[in-house]
C-alpha cells in the first residue's frame, strides 16, 4: 500500500532513531512512503491551548495535501495521531467551522473535503496488513522477552475521536503485535496512562514521578522492556528514567523500545540498524536476549 507519510517533528528531533527505523520496517512491510514534506507540526495539543482554530487549520491543511495525493495519512506518533483525529472530528462535526477553516486554505489552492483517512502505523499493521501477514514477514520470534505496552494518551482517548467503535481491535493493537513477535505481554493499568511529558518543563517533579510509576510497575511485574508507538512517551520514559530512579529511590532499569524497533528486530534488523544505541537507557539485555535465541536457532539449523 502507498501512504502519505507524516513523520512528525520528534522522529527527526528528540528521537532521531525513529525515522530511519520506520523507513526500514515499512520497506519490509511493503508500505510505500510518500512523505508530506511541506506539512506543518500538528501543534501537539500545545498550540491548541493558545488557539484551537489555528491548530485545526494547520491540520486541515495537512489533510487537504493528502487528499490531493489521494492517499491515507500514516502517522508514527500517538500524539500526532490523536491531535489529527480530534481536529478531523471537529471539522467533520461542524460544517460551518469547516467552511471557515477552508476559507483560510483557499489562497493556497487547498480544500479539506473530509475524505482523508488518518492512521498510525500501529493500526495499519493490525488492520490493513494484518497481524498474520506481519508475522509472516518476521525472521525470528522473541520468546525470551516480556514486554509491557505503553500506548500514549492520545491514541486511546477520547475514544470517540479514534474510531474505536468501528475498529474495536485498536484497543488491543499493541498487545497483538507484542504477541506477533512471540514475546509475552505484561499487562498493567499504566499502559494507557500518561507518561508525563506535557508537564515536564512545567512541573518536573510530577512528570518524573509518572515515569517512575509506570517503569517501576512494569519492572515489578517482570517486564524486560516496554514498547510504545509514541516518540513523546519515549522521550520521557527513556530520557528521564535515570532521574525517575533517583527521585523515587527505586533501582529502575526499563529499556523503552519504539514500536518499529521491536518489529524491526524481529524482522532481523540489527540493533544498530534500529538505532538502539541512541537510547538513554541501555537496551543491551534486550539485544542479548534476542541474540542468544537466534544463536541457538542458528546452531540447530
Amino acid at each position: 500500500m502507498k501512504v502519505a507519510f507524516y513523520p512528525g517533528c520528534v522522529s527527526r528531533g528528540g528521537c532521531p532513531e525513529l525515522y530511519p527505523a520506520t523507513i526500514k520496517v515499512c520497506q519490509k512491510l511493503g508500505i510505500e512512503l510518500d512523505e508530506l514534506t511541506g506539512a506543518a507540526c500538528t501543534g501537539a495539543g500545545v498550540l491548541q491551548e493558545k488557539d484551537r482554530k489555528l491548530g485545526d487549520t494547520l491540520n486541515a491543511r495537512t489533510f487537504a495535501m493528502a487528499e490531493k495525493k489521494g492517499l491515507p495519512i500514516m502517522t508514527i506518533c500517538s500524539t500526532c495521531q490523536g491531535v489529527m483525529s480530534q481536529a478531523y472530528k471537529r471539522l467533520m462535526d461542524d460544517a460551518k467551522y469547516r467552511e471557515e477553516v477552508n476559507a483560510l486554505l483557499k489562497e493556497e489552492g487547498l480544500e479539506f473535503k473530509g475524505t482523508v483517512v488518518i492512521k498510525h502505523l500501529l493500526w495499519i499493521m493490525v488492520e490493513d496488513i494484518g497481524v498474520d501477514r506481519v508475522k509472516a514477514l518476521l525472521t525470528r520470534q522473541l520468546p525470551d522477552l516480556r514486554i509491557a505496552p505503553f500506548y500514549g494518551c492520545y491514541i486511546v482517548r477520547p475514544s470517540w475521536a479514534l474510531g474505536f467503535a468501528e475498529h474495536p481491535d485498536r484497543q488491543h493493537s499493541l498487545e497483538d503485535l507484542i504477541e506477533a513477535v512471540g514475546a509475552t505481554v505484561v499487562d498493567y493499568d499504566g499502559k494507557t496512562k500518561c507518561c508525563g511529558l506535557p508537564i515536564l518543563l512545567i512541573n518536573e517533579k510530577n512528570s518524573v514521578d509518572m515515569v517512575a510509576k509506570h517503569t517501576s510497575t512494569a519492572q515489578h511485574l517482570g517486564a524486560n522492556a516496554m514498547v510504545t508507538p509514541c516518540p513523546l512517551c519515549h522521550l520521557n520514559l527513556d530520557g528521564y528514567q535515570p532521574k525517575a530512579a533517583k527521585q523515587s529511590g527505586i533501582g529502575i532499569h526499563m529499556p523503552i523500545l519504539h514500536l518499529p524497533q521491536l518489529i524491526g528486530l524481529a524482522m532481523g534488523f540489527s540493533p544498530k540498524e534500529m538505532g538502539m544505541e541512541r537510547h538513554i537507557v541501555s537496551t543491551r539485555e534486550v539485544e542479548e536476549a534476542i541474540a542468544g535465541r537466534s544463536a541457538v536457532g542458528a546452531g540447530r539449523r
Binding site: C153, R157, P158, K193, P198, N203, N206, M210
Partner: peptide
C-alpha cells in the same frame, strides 16, 4: 491550570 498533563482521562 498549568499542572494538568492533558491526558484526557477526565474527558473520557
Amino acid at each position: 491550570i498549568w499542572d494538568c498533563t492533558r491526558c484526557m482521562e477526565c474527558v473520557q
